[in-house]
């Protein structure tokens, strides 16, 4: 299978100017690839830099050293030096991010929140809303909530809305940031199914999963991040 994502000797250091310019090295020499249709999970204890790697790939954090190469159509794009608008465009059609925290958009119904990324990719509103309802149903979000804005939902309900939002559109690369944290067993299984469907569709996935059970069920490979950790 073709490589979708390749991190080439990537390094990241935070400089904390408010603490007298202290340098906090996070990772260095990160070097791995993710192929289409596989799910790679980053392993290692908290603070090992798993989240920072995910955020660098998504463009939330700057990448100080190395390259983060992404295959986008026939082109290879280096996220580390891409222009902001290029990253925004990649986020729309190429890289998806499923996190446990929902950034609440006020006054927009759950169904519309979920459907939005699909509509942005050009799917008709009707089809996107239908798919959104289907996903909310699969994730056991009660139907009476679908037309309400998720701001007032419980934590678990918000999380499931966000998972639906993350999985609805087609991105060749999908980043999973603890998608199953604090989900019950039934919904964890739904997430596992969704991941399997994405694999079948040829999506390259990179995730952080502390949940041993889910990790065992979806991970094709586990990369231990501690080997990229530099001694502080």
């Amino acid at each position: 299978m073709p490589v979708r994502l390749y991190l080439n000797t990537v390094g990241k250091t935070f400089t904390m100017h408010l603490q007298g310019g202290t340098s906090i090295p996070v990772v260095s020499n990160v070097d791995f690839a993710v192929e289409a249709g596989e799910c790679v999970v980053l392993g290692g204890p908290s603070g090992a830099g798993k989240s920072s790697i995910l955020k660098m790939i998504f463009g939330n954090y700057r990448c100080d050293e190395g390259q983060i190469l992404i295959t986008c159509n026939d082109e290879i794009v280096n996220i580390a030096d891409a222009a902001p608008r290029q990253i925004l465009s990649l986020r729309q059609d190429t890289i998806g991010y499923v996190s446990q925290f929902l950034r609440v958009i006020p006054r927009v119904s759950a169904t519309e929140v979920v459907a939005e990324p699909l509509i942005a990719q050009g799917t008709s509103e009707e089809a996107a809303l239908a798919k959104a309802r289907d996903l909310l149903n699969r994730l056991n979000v009660p139907e009476r909530l679908w037309n309400l804005p998720p701001a007032t939902f419980s934590g678990g309900e918000q999380q499931r809305v966000n998972i639906a939002r993350g999985f609805i559109a087609h991105y060749p690369i999908l980043l999973l940031d603890e998608p199953t944290a604090s989900l019950d067993a039934v919904n964890r299984s739904v997430v596992v199914e969704l991941v399997d469907e994405k694999k079948a569709a040829g999506v390259a996935m990179l995730g952080i999963l502390h949940d041993q059970d889910v990790r065992d069920r979806i991970a094709d490979r586990i990369i231990d991040v501690t080997k990229f950790k530099i001694a502080a």
Partner: peptide, 21 residues
């Protein structure tokens, strides 16, 4: 200057870090 969440999540300049914090 940069992508909004990059500047806010990973501010580089001392002044920006001060603003964000």
């Amino acid at each position: 200057t940069g992508l909004t969440d990059q500047v806010l999540d990973d501010p580089r300049e001392p002044y920006t870090q001060l603003l964000v914090s």
